[in-house]
Design a protein around this nucleic acid. Structure first.
Length: 552
RNA sequence: GCGCCUGUAGCUCAAUUGGAUAGAGCAUCUGCCUUCGGAGCAGAGGGUUGCAGGUUCAAGUCCUGCCAGGCGCGCCA
């Protein structure tokens, strides 16, 4: 529908330009969108304002010419009415027959309604969570998981080829720290004193892992090995155990990854040296003070960065560059990373590295998912990683439920910090926004069951003429465009917000109008509208990873 | 000190990226159940968008300067 209006608008502008003897302006940008206030119409454009500079005419005059052109089309015009308001905005009201046809399309498309080919040709790797396997997932990771996964689902629905990926830091200093922590606990449990590493991991789960090693490996068998071998074994065992834990949390949260990309394999394949070679060949590496540097300032970073220390060791950046080169080499033409806020200073240097490797800057998206503060009885819940006593993601979803947890995590723009009200999330009542959506879905499901009549697309949709009905249809019509916006801006919260609107429109419609009534034709039309609403709610909730109950 | 982010109703947040009278939820108050699910609906109050300038047809949004808060600033990961 929108595209038809767009076409007509373009033709009108062309004719206007011709009559003024002006060139058709090439880089003209303008909006054609549903207005904030729906009383203005179904679609609204600011094109006259944009044209007025170029054509040196008053916006109102331009608007009049365009409206006249469209009105001359008569029956061929896709709009029923065009109006000028606010000094030059043009508001269009669509033909209601088109709105009715929309319901039939939704009915026909079913689960596919909302999908588009907007992202056609985009092969996108989405990297998120990527928590170090040195401890359980925290609620910070949980939010990244919910946001990242929802985004993957949305990107997929809008036609992107999507590859969710988890970067597994299974090498480097933190790994050896983990290994030595487990080793120390292992010995401790056997009554042997081994000094606990400074900055080691002190959580109880380390002791748990040590305990399982003792149980599985016949008590003290590790003691027979040379110590470095035993420590290495502890490390490997611990990573496996941690990842099993992490993966089971992710599965419970309905978060899917295609690939766990191991940092260790980068070293094994010589990928780090390879990546540095690529940079060296392009002239972005130099030596200074005995270290090897990457000239990231060529790409807007505020200082150059060391990639290989004077000791010969790599910095964290080096394998990361190699990892991102591998994304490039694996053929992805778009890259999305979600990181925690502690990494935000790291963005410029990695972006610089990606550009140096040849990624076009517009294909690189590195977003920050801000922290979550839990509230219980109005008080923030203290979290401290140092003491080893933190609220894990598991504790959270077991207490609040996966549906509420996922919804709360995604309902706000990800780059603003989130207050998570535990009491509210657990409440099975009107205040809880998750239930508001799910209730709407359940209500429709039960209604359709009650109606005892199959929903058919053959209905006289002109009968749906009340304000509440038209508002609802209009709301449903925006689903595909809304998903495209969420994709383009990489902001899943838009979907959460939109679904609340859908539910509100439906509840209003439901309380104003009796759906099953004596008028058979009207009943048919309203049932089709109800079913279309259910389809949008179902598809939308599915994209957020939230269940769609038939009854509650 | 330098850099980045944030500041919108009592609270938590929106505002289609420069568009029309700044909107939702919660909280407060007032109404609505003999009929399809009241986990719902209708209505009311609540704002100098941190402050002061500037840019233009149009500024919560852009530019400058202040004020307040958060984060980052290793040959750490």
């Amino acid at each position: 529908m929108k595209s038809k209006v767009e076409e007509v608008l373009r033709a009108a502008v062309e004719s206007l330009c011709k009559s003024r003897g002006a060139e058709k302006p090439g880089g003209l940008t303008y909006d054609l969108q549903p207005p904030k206030d729906s009383r203005h119409g179904d679609l609204s454009t600011n094109i006259s304002f944009r044209l007025s500079k170029i054509l040196r005419l008053k916006p109102a005059e331009i608007a009049q010419t365009i409206v006249a052109y469209i009105e001359d089309l008569g029956e061929d015009s896709p709009v029923e009415e065009s109006r000028i308001a606010g000094g030059g905005f043009i508001n269009f009201r669509l033909r209601t027959t088109d709105l009715g046809a929309l319901l039939q399309n939704i009915h026909k498309a079913g689960p596919a309604y909302g999908c588009s080919d907007y992202g056609k040709g985009k092969k996108v790797v989405v990297e998120f969570v990527s928590a170090n396997p040195t401890g359980p997932l925290t609620i910070a990771h949980g939010r990244q998981a919910a946001v990242g996964d929802a985004l993957c689902r949305i990107l997929k629905a809008t036609g992107h080829e999507v590859y969710p990926e988890y970067y597994l830091n299974d090498a480097g200093r933190q790994m050896s720290l983990l290994a030595r922590s487990v080793w120390a606990r292992y010995n401790e449990l056997l009554g042997i004193a081994v000094p606990f590493p400074e900055d080691g991991y002190k959580g109880d789960y380390i002791r748990e892992i040590a305990r399982t090693i003792i149980e599985k490996e016949k008590k003290d068998s590790l003691l027979k090995d040379p110590e470095d071998k035993a420590v290495e074994y502890c490390g490997q065992y611990a990573v496996k155990a941690m990842m099993a834990w992490i993966e089971s949390d992710l599965a419970k949260m309905r978060v899917r990854f295609d690939n766990y990309f191991s940092e260790k394999t980068l070293y094994a394949k010589g990928a780090v040296e390879h990546a540095l070679d690529v940079l060296r060949q392009k002239g972005y590496l130099f030596e200074s003070e005995g270290a090897l540097w990457f000239r990231s300032t060529d790409f807007g970073d505020d200082k150059d960065r060391v990639v290989k220390k004077s000791t010969g060791e790599y910095t964290y950046l080096a394998p990361d560059i190699a990892y991102h080169l591998s994304k490039y080499e694996r053929g992805y033409n778009m890259m999305v990373n979600f990181w925690g806020p502690d990494h935000h200073g790291y963005i410029p240097r990695l972006k610089a590295a990606c550009q140096a490797l040849g990624y076009p800057p517009e294909a690189i998206h590195i977003g920050i998912v801000q922290l979550t503060t839990l509230y219980r009885e109005g008080q923030p819940v203290r979290m401290s990683t140092r003491a080893g006593e933190f609220v894990t993601l598991r504790e959270l979803y077991e207490e609040a439920g996966v549906d509420a947890t996922r919804f709360f995590f995604t309902m706000r723009r990800q780059e603003s910090p989130l207050d998570f009200d535990l009491d509210l999330a657990k409440e099975q009542s009107q205040e809880n926004p998750v239930y508001y959506l799910q209730y709407a879905h359940a209500r429709i499901a039960s209604l359709l069951k009650f109606a005892d009549e199959k929903v058919t697309p053959e209905a006289d949709l002109a009968l749906l003429s009340s304000q509440e009905e038209i508002e609802l249809i209009r709301c449903l019509s925006q689903f595909p465009d809304m998903l495209i916006a969420a994709s383009r801006l990489l902001e899943p919260y838009r979907l959460a917000d939109y679904l609340r609107q859908v539910a509100a429109c439906f509840h209003k419609f439901y309380s104003f109008h009796r759906i099953v009534n004596e008028d058979k034709e009207l009943t048919k039309a309203r049932l089709l509208l109800s079913e279309a609403t259910r389809i949008v709610l179902r598809n939308g909730l599915e994209l957020l990873g939230i269940s769609q109950p038939e009854s509650m």
